[in-house]
Design a protein around this nucleic acid. Structure first.
Length: 155
DNA sequence: GCCAACGTTGGC
DNA sequence: GCCAACGTTGGC
């Protein structure tokens, strides 16, 4: 299985790369994704060892702020069954999980975040899912050359 | 805060 | 299965 590349969005007011940095083992579960297209990626496509662009959305300066590695592949998001969780989903049956998550581990926090504006300036990145009009997927595929180009911009 | 784009819900 | 209404996302 060859390594794949992804981009995951998070609102830094909810969970930021600084939060990930502070976790034990700098690892967290990526809970709360409640979109079927993204769910399918989390459940079926994303493999341990895959690389992730960590993206801050809905904030003053939207940007890729670092990279992470998938440290556990898809498993049921148990927050959906927890009434106290903000991600509780009353329609979910633990016997037949609807929502999935993966674990991610911090790889690198960029010293220099790669802003959305700077991504748009790069001709090599015009096909990135993130940059397409109306694109809202919070977990999305990235091509290797795109991943590499973004990492390069962080230097 | 605005609003375009997209996803989901539910009546029919 | 259609589609209007509503809710959410997320850049600006």
């Amino acid at each position: 299985m060859t390594m794949k590349y992804w981009l995951m969005k998070t609102e830094p007011t909810t969970y930021s790369i600084q939060d990930l940095e502070k976790e034990s083992n700098q690892t967290t579960c990526w809970e709360g994704v409640r979109n079927y297209q993204a769910r399918n990626l989390l459940r079926d496509e994303i493999q341990e060892g895959d690389r992730v662009l960590f993206y801050h959305s809905a904030c003053k300066e939207p940007a890729v702020v670092g990279t992470a590695v998938v440290s556990r592949q898809g498993y049921p998001d148990h927050h959906a069954f927890d009434k106290r969780s903000k991600y509780y989903d009353a329609k979910c049956d633990p016997e037949n999980p609807r929502w999935y998550m993966v674990d991610v581990t911090l790889e690198q926090k960029f010293g220099c975040p790669v802003t959305l504006a700077s991504l748009r300036e790069k001709a090599a990145l015009t096909d990135m899912v993130l940059l397409q009009k109306g694109s809202r997927l919070s977990v999305q595929p990235v091509k290797k050359k795109e991943f590499d180009a973004v990492v390069k911009l962080a230097k």
